[in-house]
């Protein structure tokens, strides 16, 4: 509120008094999830508030989470699906973004207009026809069903094009004179210079697809293909009301990879996710 002027001591205290309850609101579901995940059942079903368990039951709960449901499998599925999606998105988007940013060819404006048009389409809008298409092709209930719809990221094309436009033309020309082909330029020249932007896009992509629930819910119903969100819901549907400890342990495990990643690369993370909003 008062940029440039240091707060008085009273102001500083008031600031923390205002921010601390909001921080508690933001963290409460996480804290309660973690605390519950280390409590024995009898302490979970208490009708008084007890924050810290009297008996530490974490090992049992986390072990149960892995045995009552194939949690490891869900995590593996999540890793396979998100990694494949990102790699394919990059493989498709980078060449297109390079052509749109650096090559002059008839039809370029039309292609870019199509990209902008596709940017308007929310993913849920294409669910019905894609479901029917995949049903006809017989590829529902497969990794392909989870991955294929997201192989094209028009957002990725748009973002990388914007970034490539900032790369000097001289660099591209130098590469051509040095004898690098147009395909080679994408991978040998543009990609290395675009690593920060690609990392941010990667974080955006991985977070979006690790957390996605809508499409996996539609595309697969075989347990061995469940992604983490599907897995944790299935877990809850079977166990809710009885074993909250293992359920909270499972939920905690599923959010753990992203939270860890976030703690390691906070700045890039915030950058990557807010890309959606900024551009």
């Amino acid at each position: 509120m008062s940029a440039g002027r240091p707060l008085s001591r009273r102001g500083a205290v008031l600031r923390h008094l205002a921010l601390a309850p909001i921080a508690l609101f933001a963290l409460a579901p996480f804290l309660w999830m973690l605390l519950t995940s280390i409590k024995p059942p009898e302490e979970i079903f208490l009708d008084t508030i007890r924050l810290w368990p009297q008996h530490f039951y974490g090992l049992e709960n986390y072990a149960a989470a892995f045995t009552k449901a194939p949690l490891g499998r869900f995590l593996l599925n999540g890793a396979v699906v998100t990694a494949s999606i990102f790699l394919l998105q990059a493989a498709v988007a980078l060449p297109a973004a390079y052509a749109l940013a650096k090559l002059r060819f008839r039809g370029r404006e039309t292609v870019f207009a199509l990209v902008l048009l596709c940017l308007l389409i929310p993913p849920q809008a294409v669910a019905v026809p894609l479901f029917l298409l995949f049903f006809q092709l017989g590829i529902l209930n497969s990794y392909a069903a989870l991955i294929v719809p997201f192989t094209i990221s028009v957002f990725g094309i748009f973002l990388m094009r914007q970034f490539f436009r900032t790369v000097p033309d001289d660099l591209v020309d130098a590469a051509r004179i040095d004898g690098i082909s147009e395909f080679g330029i994408v991978w040998r020249v543009m990609l290395p210079t675009a690593l920060p932007a690609l990392t941010a896009f990667g974080i955006f992509s991985v977070v979006a697809h690790w957390n996605d629930y809508f499409w996996p819910l539609i595309a697969v119903n075989a347990e061995h293909l469940y992604t983490p969100p599907l897995g944790v819901v299935a877990f809850r549907n079977e166990e809710a009301g009885t074993s909250y400890g293992p359920l909270m342990a499972a939920a905690a495990i599923i959010i753990l990879p992203l939270v860890l990643l976030f703690l390691f690369a906070q700045r890039r993370f915030i950058e990557g996710i807010t890309f959606t909003g900024m551009k």
């Binding site: 000097p168 001289d170 660099l171 020309d173 130098a174 004179i177 690098i180 040998r188 020249v189 290395p192």
Partner: peptide, 15 residues
Amino acid sequence: SARNLAMVFQSYALY
């Protein structure tokens, strides 16, 4: 690349 010329650019264009 096949003309066997070398070019030095204003921005140097180093990788």
